[in-house]
Design a protein around this nucleic acid. Sequence first.
DNA 1: TTGCTTGATACTCGGAATGCATCAGTTCCC
DNA 2: GGGAACTGATGCATTCCGAGTATCAAGCAA
Lengths: 292, 292
Amino acid sequence: MYTLDQVRCFLAVAEELHFGRAAERLNMTQPPLSRQVQKLERAVGVPLLERDNRHVELTTAGTVFLEEARRLLTAADAAPALARKIAAGRAGVLRLGFTAASGFSLLGTLVQEITDFMPDVDLDLQELVTIEQIEAIRRGELDLALGRPPFDQESFDSRLLLSEDLVLAVPPGHALTRLDRPVTAADLRDQPVVGHHPTKARYFYDMVVRYIAVEHGNVVHVVSQILTMCSLVAAGRGVAFVPESARLLGLPGVTFVELDVPHGVVELHAIWDRSSKNPALHEFLRYLHPSS
Amino acid sequence: MYTLDQVRCFLAVAEELHFGRAAERLNMTQPPLSRQVQKLERAVGVPLLERDNRHVELTTAGTVFLEEARRLLTAADAAPALARKIAAGRAGVLRLGFTAASGFSLLGTLVQEITDFMPDVDLDLQELVTIEQIEAIRRGELDLALGRPPFDQESFDSRLLLSEDLVLAVPPGHALTRLDRPVTAADLRDQPVVGHHPTKARYFYDMVVRYIAVEHGNVVHVVSQILTMCSLVAAGRGVAFVPESARLLGLPGVTFVELDVPHGVVELHAIWDRSSKNPALHEFLRYLHPSS
DNA sequence: TTGCTTGATACTCGGAATGCATCAGTTCCC
DNA sequence: GGGAACTGATGCATTCCGAGTATCAAGCAA
């Protein structure tokens, strides 16, 4: 079995792609570093790095192991911190994930409310896209997510926090800003579109497919974050479908026009594992559902 | 910093609530176990166990650390297993490009076969024309392409997957449907033709130039996708040369007549970079060439 | 060719973990 | 009340592992 030190060694080498520099970063010399990585590879059972007597590069297995290694080390660092916080008499820790987009809208007020209502609870905030949040909850690395459907209704409970409109982000002075009616699919026939990633931003992708049949050939970029979309719009690369709260970004070079879609279609939910035993989470849920 | 062994020691003690039995379970003697747990507690910074000279019990911090510890060890066990699976090609990602036309014919069965043969491999599908696929492979953004010649035989390996006939798409009731012999170039002298794009659909363009000398002036549209061609035929804009599998589209307003060209001239190849290191690709190739 | 770079290996040394023996505190029972 | 039994901690000798130094081997450049 391998040790965390070996994982740390591997991480440094994988990031530097150079044993000498990695050793320097770890405050050790190169030979023991080589041996530690060799040991790790023997423990894992497959080569993680390909050494070329001149260059070092990750194998495919090494690439995915690197991801796991990062998570492992993060968890290894977080565990004692968590234990210390508990021991220090704090009421607990609430690990809250949020999407970049929800950060603009209600994250601020929500954090304020939580700290008011549960002043002794430490809040750990992490920005992740929805699926990553769901995965993190499933792995027990997160207590509460601010995300969008779909998610497994079996294992997760949720509550709708916010409904907002889907609007079209366009550069200022764009022809569509001069329309005095909501933009329809027909208006977009010849518009380059900055599209959503079909899996990472599945919620928006599905919504756009459903309400606005965008010509496949019009999609000029595929991205997963609202902020990136707006930047691309500002750069004149096309128009984009974004939640109304993107206005709060205050980005120059972007303005927003109404779309011919139902109001309030963009939903933001609080999502949690119904089997979680974190007392801080339950305390928060009591605040969220004052009834129950 | 602590080690995974220390965590394993703590886990055993926390579960047994007895140093002696925990030591037995870990195949070690009791004194070093005590010291390992002490070390872990020093690393974490707070007591995790309360020893009572008669009983052992978890502190509050110990309880939450126990949970984290379990997760940590699970992740530490899972990571190498995952890496081994990746290296064996039994898991991972296979990025598969396909032309719209190949989508109608064998993409479905191929995808089915891949998911049967390599159930843990994620398939990323992307529709691109052949040259874009080749470029994507060259840039390392795609592992496998379903495309048509020509492509650089130096850097790419390939395998013929399908040969089919070139047929003529015409509107139903068209004069050429009443011929009782294959259509020849002469029959097309006065027909408006929906033509292929000379670079984006070079394979079909070259093939048509080679087998049927179409009058230049007859070409009323130049498009690069079979589906677009068929739609234009259905709209009565002309006739078009398409692979027989376009029948599978089931488009109303289009029927197909035989052409006086050799059978099986439309080829579809699986194409890949012979220097690719993706184990999932190699696993798939083993499936494709059971011989080698 | 020579010299430089880079990762692997040989060897020695110091620190850490192990196991044995033992201690110290508690509980139980006669 | 006192000794036996039990439990976790500690002292000590041994062993083992990992670190550092020196060096090697392979590839590349001039």
